[in-house]
Simulated scan of single mutants.
Amino acid sequence: MKPKLNHERRSLITLSNPKSPISESYRTLRTNIQFASVDQELKTVMVTSTGPSEGKSTTVANLAVVTAQGEKRTLLVDSDLRKPTVHHTFQLVNRKGLTTFLTGQDTLQEVAQETDNPYLHVVTSGPIPPNPAELLGSKAMARFIQEASLAYDQIFFDTPPVIAVTDAQILASKVSGVILVVNSGVTNKDVALKAKTLLTNVKANLLGVVLNNKKMQGDSYYYYYYGNKS
């Protein structure tokens, strides 16, 4: 049974207004990921940003929702072990999660929580640890990815920003694809290029960039996916 909390859930456009242009853009992003590679299945995808408040957590949560709406067994993992937010977004308890799996306290089945969509499960961060980077780089993390890949069709990871800490780089080397979120008109170009360099240095498979909060005609805001890595 999914636990219920009393605090207000953060609004996800793909749930509140699934027919909106923004929701359609998330479905386009989902489709682009599915066709981004013809040689290997992109089952594990990490979403990160250059810095804070660029929309990475909103992007990955909506992406997980539309993937589950397509009836694919989807797992959203909050691997931002410094400032986790996924439990707030989906109104879930966070007493156990990724960190309690990585420290051997719980199994995947015990930390994967149900949501309103039967195809979408969420693993919250769990208690914030003193050593996030070490946990993400551990053999236990590799085991988590392996077990999740057997149980789900698609796994998405929310990570800390690339520039701030090494966590995203560590996880980027373990997943099959990486998406970088930048904030239109806000993200500095040089900083974005530095984030790209940090990811390519660990041989991350950078799928492309989501341009967030790009104002278009009609005062609508869209999220675009660019498959070009250059």
Rank of each mutant, 00 (worst) to 15 (best):
T28G: 09
L199T: 11
P160M: 06
T100D: 09
Q146I: 00
L136A: 08
A172H: 00
T58A: 00
L207Q: 02
E41M: 10
P118V: 11
D106E: 11
L136D: 06
G70T: 03
Q91V: 09
E147R: 11
V162I: 08
L108M: 10
K43E: 11
N6W: 07
S138R: 01
Y26P: 05
G185F: 09
V66M: 02
V60D: 04
Q91M: 02
S25R: 13
F144C: 10
E110N: 15
N17S: 15
I163C: 03
L180S: 10
G227Q: 06
Y225F: 15
S53Q: 12
Q40R: 14
N117W: 13
S176T: 02
K4R: 04
Y119M: 14
V178F: 09
Q34R: 14
K215Q: 10
T44V: 10
L150G: 14
T28C: 12
S53R: 12
K43W: 01
L98G: 08
V186T: 04
L12S: 12
N188P: 01
E110Q: 15
K56F: 07
V165F: 05
R27N: 07
N228E: 09
Q69T: 14
V182N: 00
A64G: 03
D78W: 05
L180Q: 14
Y152H: 13
N131H: 12
D158Y: 05
E147I: 12
R82Y: 00
G218S: 03
T124G: 12
E71C: 13
V175E: 01
Q40W: 04
E54Q: 08
T28L: 12
V202D: 04
Y119T: 12
L75M: 06
S125G: 15
D158T: 03
N201S: 14
P127A: 15
R9Y: 05
F157E: 04
V60G: 07
D158F: 01
V210P: 01
K196Q: 05
T85H: 11
V45C: 05
N131L: 13
L12G: 09
E24G: 05
V191T: 09
V186Q: 13
K83D: 04
N94T: 01
N32L: 10
S20K: 07
S53M: 05
G126K: 11
E24N: 03
V38L: 15
I13T: 15
L102C: 02
E54V: 07
L211F: 13
L12R: 13
V86K: 04
F90G: 07
L206F: 13
S11G: 08
V65T: 07
F156E: 09
A64R: 08
I179G: 05
S149Q: 15
R95I: 03
T59K: 02
T99L: 06
S173T: 04
P127V: 15
K189P: 00
